[in-house]
Write a protein that binds this DNA or RNA. Structure first.
Lengths: 116, 116
DNA sequence: CAGGATCCTGTAGGATACTG
DNA sequence: CAGTATCCTACAGGATCCTG
């Protein structure tokens, strides 16, 4: 299969875009992924690293990300239960987009403040 | 300014991510950008190319995209008024992300159908 | 520490009809 | 053709308190 000969299909593209948006959509999923990428693994750690997020949203989003195979959740120990969140290899397939979006956001801020 | 020496700042990254999400957020902005990238320029053309979108959402999103400098709106003629929507050069700074997201969405669909 | 349970609200977005 | 104007509602997301 030669990828250079893939025929672009508009409807399929839009569907794919919406699928992607569905997985990473909402206000918090990308910030959470980014927090994990920065080495945070514990619930409270992640919470503190993302200004404004509530426990409700954090646990909700973590679940969805886990369901989509983007992150993993591991239980360590028994009595003082330790939970470890990590990005999966699958998450790494998204890191390029993540970085590009960060760069874009930074440039965009310059872009709009430049012109008032 | 050597970009390789940029110190990564987590809070700034998250802010940048949320800025980007704000600009392209919602259900329709990326599909619209993609439609324009595919050569559609007319309102009804764009509308027809995006299954499910309503005129209300289309005009609302087009306005916001124009405000953010992502697309341009040009009026041609006088009597049978012709409107032409086009992506701006600034929109092109986003095309890499757009393509990556399309690729990711397609792969993701394979990924999840594969496992059940 | 790692969340769950509730309650509440704004707004994104849908449906439908209409206009120059 | 290129949109406006209304009306409506589901749900994303916030606030707060509680639990093992």
């Amino acid at each position: 299969m030669d990828t250079s000969t893939i025929v672009r299909n508009e409807a399929q593209e839009i569907q794919a875009l919406q699928d992607t948006l569905y997985v990473i959509g909402g206000k918090w999923k990308l910030p959470i992924m980014n927090s994990l990428c920065n080495g945070n693994t514990r619930y409270r750690e992640i919470e503190r690293s993302i200004p404004g997020i509530t426990t409700r949203m954090l646990s909700k989003e973590l679940k969805e990300l886990e369901l989509n195979g983007i992150i993993s959740r591991t239980v360590h120990g028994t009595s003082p239960v330790l939970i470890e969140y990590k990005t999966t290899d699958y998450c790494k397939t998204f890191s390029a987009i993540l970085l590009e979006m960060i760069k874009w956001g930074i440039e965009h801020k310059k872009h709009i403040t430049k012109k008032g």
